[in-house]
Design a protein around this nucleic acid. Structure first.
Lengths: 193, 193
DNA sequence: CGTCTATTTGAATGTACTCAAAAGCGGTGG
DNA sequence: CCACCGCTTTTGAGTACATTCAAATAGACG
C-alpha cells in the first residue's frame, strides 16, 4: 500500500508514533478507479471517507435538465466524500467519479470511529482539515456572489493553474457555474487582449 | 453571564462534567452589540470566536462598486467569526455587524488553545460543528450553481422561514446574490401566482 | 479509420442588472 | 405626537451578461 502521501498529510497537523501510525494504516483500504468510473452515485449510502493518492475526482450533482454542477474537484493529497451521507448513512446527494485513473485510500465509518477512540489526536486532525475546507468554501461562496463569470474564471486559473491543465473546459465550466459555450467565448475574448 | 444556551449547544455533541463546565465558562466573555454596530471590520485581526446568545449578525464583504455580499447570517445558537483571520492572525476578509441588538459570548485564541489542551473533547466538539457548517456551505454552493434566483429565494424562505421574517429584503437579496430591485420583482411575480 | 464527445462560432433569447423616479416605512428631534 | 429625513421597496424602461439552439470543426479513444 502506498502510504507515504497520507502519512505526510497527517503529519502536517499531528504527530504519530510508530504504534499509532501502524494502527492508522491498518484501518485503510486501497482502491483503484479507472477514468469515468464512479466512487459514489447519488442515492447510494456513502460508507467510506477517501484520501486521493493519485489521480483526479469530481463531486457533482445533475439537475433536472441533465446539467452537471461540480461542487469540488479532488486531486492528490485531498480528502473527498459525501460527508452528510457518510455521517447520517442517508442517500448521497452527490455523484463522485474519476476524471483520470485514480488511486485512493478509504476508511470506513466503523474504522474511523475506532481511530477517534484509540487515537483522539485524529479528532484534532480532522478538525483542522475541516477548518481549511470551510474557509475555502466560504471564499468560493463569496466569489460566486461578488464576481462575474470572467472574474471567477481568471481567479480559478490563477489559484489552481496545475489543476486547470488537467481538466477539460467542460469540467471547468461546470465548476464555475457557466455553460461550456460561454466559457469558450470568454477564452476567445481574453486571448484577444 | 447567560450560559444556558451555549451549554445546551455544547451538550448536543459532547458531555462535560462540573469542573469542565466551569472551566469552559471561565474562558468566555460576554459582549453586547447595538444594531448596526460592528463586531469585526475587513482588515482587522479577528481575535475571538463568537457564539450568539441573542440577536442577529451578518458576515459579508463589500465589492469595488460598494455592493454588500453576505456569506452567512448568524442567529441564536450559532457560532460566527472570520475563521481564516482568527487562525492565522491575518487581516480579516469579512465585515461582521449586528442586524439587531445582539448578545454574544467570545473566546480568545489563547483561551481556546487552553481549552483544547485541558479538555480535548472540545477538539471533537468543534470538529462536529465544522462538519455541519461544511455540509451546509456545500449545499449552498451547489444551489448557487444549479438554481435560478427564483429557486434560491423559494428554497431560502422554506429553509429559514423564521429568519426571513427578521431580515429586510435588502439583506436577503445580498445573501441570494441578486439586487434588491430584482428580488422585489420576483416577489411580485410569485404573489400573483 | 470511424464514432463520439468537446469546442468553436453565430444568431436569437432570457434572466438579471442599471438607471430613474415614486411611494412606503421607520426612526429621530423639535 | 407629528413632521421630516433617510433608507428601503416598488415600478417601469432600457441594457448587459449569459444561455439556448444550431451547425461546423476539432480532438480523443477504441
Amino acid at each position: 500500500m502506498d502510504t507515504d502521501l497520507i502519512l505526510k498529510n497527517v503529519s502536517r497537523h499531528i504527530h504519530l508514533d510508530k504504534t499509532e501510525t501502524d494502527f492508522f494504516i491498518s484501518l485503510l483500504q486501497t482502491k483503484n478507479l479507472k477514468r469515468k468510473e464512479f466512487l459514489l452515485k447519488q442515492g447510494d449510502i456513502c460508507k467510506t471517507e477517501h484520501f486521493i493518492v493519485k489521480g483526479c475526482l469530481r463531486t457533482y450533482t445533475v439537475d433536472n435538465n441533465g446539467f452537471e454542477h461540480i461542487v469540488m474537484f479532488g486531486i492528490e493529497d485531498w480528502w473527498v466524500g459525501d460527508l452528510y451521507s457518510f455521517l447520517t448513512q442517508s442517500p448521497a446527494t452527490y455523484f463522485i467519479d474519476a476524471l483520470e485513473d485514480t488511486e485512493i485510500l478509504q476508511i470506513s465509518e466503523v474504522n474511523l470511529d475506532k481511530l477517534y477512540e484509540s487515537v483522539p489526536k485524529f479528532e484534532r486532525f480532522f478538525r483542522l482539515i475541516l477548518q481549511n475546507a470551510f474557509i475555502s468554501q466560504q471564499q468560493r461562496i463569496n466569489q460566486n456572489l461578488s464576481f462575474t463569470a470572467e472574474q471567477r474564471y481568471l481567479y480559478f486559473i490563477k489559484k489552481y493553474p496545475q489543476l486547470e491543465q488537467r481538466l477539460s473546459q467542460k469540467q471547468v465550466s461546470a465548476y464555475l457555474g457557466i455553460t461550456p459555450v460561454f466559457l469558450s467565448m470568454l477564452r476567445r475574448k481574453l486571448s484577444k487582449k
